[in-house]
Design a protein around this nucleic acid. Structure first.
Lengths: 225, 225, 225, 225
DNA sequence: GATGAATGAGCATTCATTCAT
DNA sequence: CATGAATGAATGCTCATTCAT
């Protein structure tokens, strides 16, 4: 149902090997692996991507640089792993959120999805915003592309299930556009520094605009809501 | 009318000096200056930001590395100059496009704006897409921020002038959201590799969705257009 | 007893970090550290300070430039380490020489100290003269300042112990002056190219003049010695 | 009467050409020449030798870099010219001071010479101290060597004229030593930051010690002066 | 003569990555 | 398995000097 062809495993040629060298199997290995990815995230959240060095990641993770290279073939692969994990969390959360909309009115459902999305993007353990701000190439990384496709698929699902409400003349293209715009708008809201109230207002309005896009009219309750 | 406070002159502290060392005054100087910025753009369009070196820029521009540093204090400032120029072109083009919509039906106007925007973003002499893809910090650069603010202001202007058609309960916030979404969606379309037809379809649909967002219903002519 | 206030740890602000990055702990590390400092000394003994490059030091030391920067944060810190070591050797030797004067007649003691001092300053493993000739800032480096203070202190000690012979109306100031003059005169003698005999004569006469300064009359044995 | 052989004009091989390219003949040329040398002095008095660049000198002198190279063949030659001028001033002043001692008692004469010497070394228009601190290679420059020889000659003159008072068993060597020590001690005093009183004390004591060196006993008036 | 734009060899320093222990 | 000393290619940038105008 995805709109783009999924490419083969290792990623485009303009990035080297992106897969970790070894998937951690035992508990200890797993902890080391996680510590490295985590250190990378914390470093990225605080500094510029250009100052992110493998030596710094290793030190922050409390492992030797040699150990780091046991697990990852190069620097990019660590960022890729971080991005993948972050995306996985995001997709899981969005699926949960969709479940939670069961029984809600369409407009309330959209609002709930947006709220959940922004919250997930802003979660501190979720380095998504840092990643996007500092290393935009991650947006072209297979795991991230897949995540965006998964979100598009999700939108397509919703459209299918709500086909009595939704009115899209070009279902496929329109859904893709809406999903892109929603994702970017949520990201912009998540990146905003302003007060909580502003963010809440923007989320509510984003829901209204999304409803308008999908249905072609305002939700019952009128413009003044 | 801008949505963000404009900051003081020299740009954020997390980047060093961003202003060129000397503004070209004579014809010869100007040509050198332009050659450097241009070389930077061409390099950025073809390679990763991380492989962009000052020596490569100088070589490509056909000047010595010493000359490059006569005009720019550091590497970032070249990218900043490129971004500023690119943004300026984009904003100018969008203002033109707005003029051109005079007399058009609202929906046709939106479509025209989107067409012009995508075209401008894709223009080869406009390195905007390369910049966004490759240079993380560019989006946070004052000239780029100002360009985005200028585009938002433009949307606010349009809304004011079309206040009889547009129906936005939270005019300020809604316009900001629409402008963000439009900009990002146009960027996504511009970045797309697919066939021209697909891009045309997406532009048309983006116009429809934008109309829906702004007015709350489909343009005259119905869903089937 | 020192004549100047000792300053706080890291050295003056007009030079960057001067401390080595890591003090060598193991045998191998220590050898590398020493090889770098030693190479710096040999290079300085043969060429001008301005031609002393970190790459040359690394090559001469038989280590890679990267390794050099593992141990030292910058070029100055290598020269500083060299100066510190050289000073330490000098101070140690002068202390020894003072011990050796036990039981000597005062004038013979002075002569012995001067002989030892010039010899130490000329010692090929002691790059002191090269350092003074070539590296402007070295004399203002904390370790060098401390060495000069140590030598002044030494003179003050001698004065105190020989208080029955020495006749100085302004003990503190006079001793400081004598120590400065002695140090510089020994340096001038050590820097001299002439034949050994001339150096010996100058050393003998320097001892006489020093005795005159300290006691106010010629040593027993008369002017004709 | 000098103790070292005077070398041929252009200076040792380890420094390039040191002579100015053209001696200024006309008033205008002369002003330019002086402005460059002066700018060099002011820059040296305020910053480190390593930060002294020809471009900075030209800018400070208010001439173009091209003009600077019309007058001087390289950077060192500017510093050399500055040193030569500074030395010339110093030697002139010392000769004057010697004239001024006519009729003074020997000890008072020595004191006067020292006072005049320290004052000359400290004079702000005299960059001698800055030169020594920042570019010790100037001490090996022909003009400076010649100045030091001139000062030694001066001491030898004084010795000859005061041969009834002075008692030096090795007149030539002793005078050389005294002159070296005096010069260095005066330099040390001139470089001192402390209060004026301390400097005055040191000058007085230096006179006493010099008298002791030259005559072998305290001046009439006793140790307590 | 004077100018200052242009030059480019050369320097200090970084950092991803390897491999002997 | 883990370590961390060692590597060295590559980068940003400076500055003495030249030369066309």
């Amino acid at each position: 149902m995805s709109t783009t062809v999924r490419r083969a495993a290792p990623g485009p040629a303009w990035l080297g090997e992106l897969e970790p060298r070894k998937r951690p199997s035992q508990a200890r290995s797993h902890a080391t692996f996680a510590a490295i990815v985590d250190a990378c995230g914390r470093l990225l959240a605080r500094g510029r991507y250009e100052t992110l060095t493998t030596n710094a990641i290793a030190e922050r993770a409390g492992v030797s640089i040699g150990t780091l290279y046991e697990y990852f073939p190069n620097r990019e692969s660590i960022v890729a792993a971080l991005a993948a994990e972050s995306c996985r969390r995001l997709v899981v959360r969005m699926h949960e959120a969709v479940e939670e909309t069961a029984g809600m009115a369409p407009h309330a459902g959209v609002e709930h999805l947006i709220e959940a999305g922004v919250e997930a993007l802003r979660a501190p353990e979720n380095v998504f915003t840092a990643l996007v701000r500092e290393a935009p190439f991650v947006l072209r990384l297979p795991p991230v592309q897949e995540a965006r496709e998964a979100l598009t698929d999700l939108c397509q699902d919703i459209r299918t299930r709500a086909s009595d409400t939704v009115r899209l003349p070009e279902p496929q293209a329109d859904t893709w556009l809406i999903s892109q715009m929603l994702f970017n708008a949520m990201l912009e809201i998540a990146l905003l520094d302003g007060p909580e109230a502003r963010r809440a207002l923007l989320q509510r309005e984003l829901a209204r605009l999304t409803f308008r896009m999908a249905v072609g009219c305002d939700p019952p309750g009128g413009v003044s809501e």
